[in-house]
């Protein structure tokens, strides 16, 4: 019993951890009341997916995907594509975080708070419709 669990964890444990990280991020976005914390949780979630890609891109015994003269077989290199994809994903997540932070700036300027409860209370107080 123990050995099968050990074997499973050794092979797939990292995916389990990634899944936990992903769920933590998603739960945080739902549960947290503070918009800054929500943004952080969003980042955690994106990092979890990046981990997922990097994990399945990993290969035991492979070397970095730079053409070396002594390594000739393709099977001795790891696949560079997941890393390439994740570079793009990191740039995208940087962009999203930037937009999110600037929106938070605007929210604090206009409402003076980033707590969701306060925001909803203030939104309901200002008259709906006419004013934008």
């Amino acid at each position: 019993m123990m050995t099968t669990i050990n074997a499973f964890l050794a092979a797939k444990g990292i995916y389990l951890l990634t899944l936990i990280l992903l769920s933590l991020g998603a739960a945080g976005i739902i549960v947290c009341n503070n918009y800054m914390k929500k943004l952080i949780c969003m980042n955690v979630m994106q990092v979890a997916v990046i981990f997922f890609f990097l994990c399945f891109g990993q290969k035991t015994g492979g070397t970095i995907p730079v053409a070396l003269s002594e390594v000739v077989k393709a099977s001795e290199y790891i696949n560079p594509l997941p890393h390439g994809l994740m570079l793009t994903a990191i740039v995208v997540s940087l962009g999203t975080t930037g937009v999110g932070l600037s929106l938070l700036f605007r929210i604090t300027e206009k409402y003076g708070t980033i707590e969701e409860d306060d925001l909803i209370r203030r939104e309901n107080k200002t008259k709906t419709g006419e004013k934008e």
């Binding site: 998603a26 918009y35 929500k38 997922f52 890609f53 995208v92 929106l103 929210i107 925001l119 934008e132």
Partner: peptide, 25 residues
Amino acid sequence: GGSKGVVSAYRYMLVGTIAATFYLL
């Protein structure tokens, strides 16, 4: 679109990023 627009954009951003993350997954 004004002060309410900022808050709805922020909410959309959170949900929209979850969507993009799910797509990537």
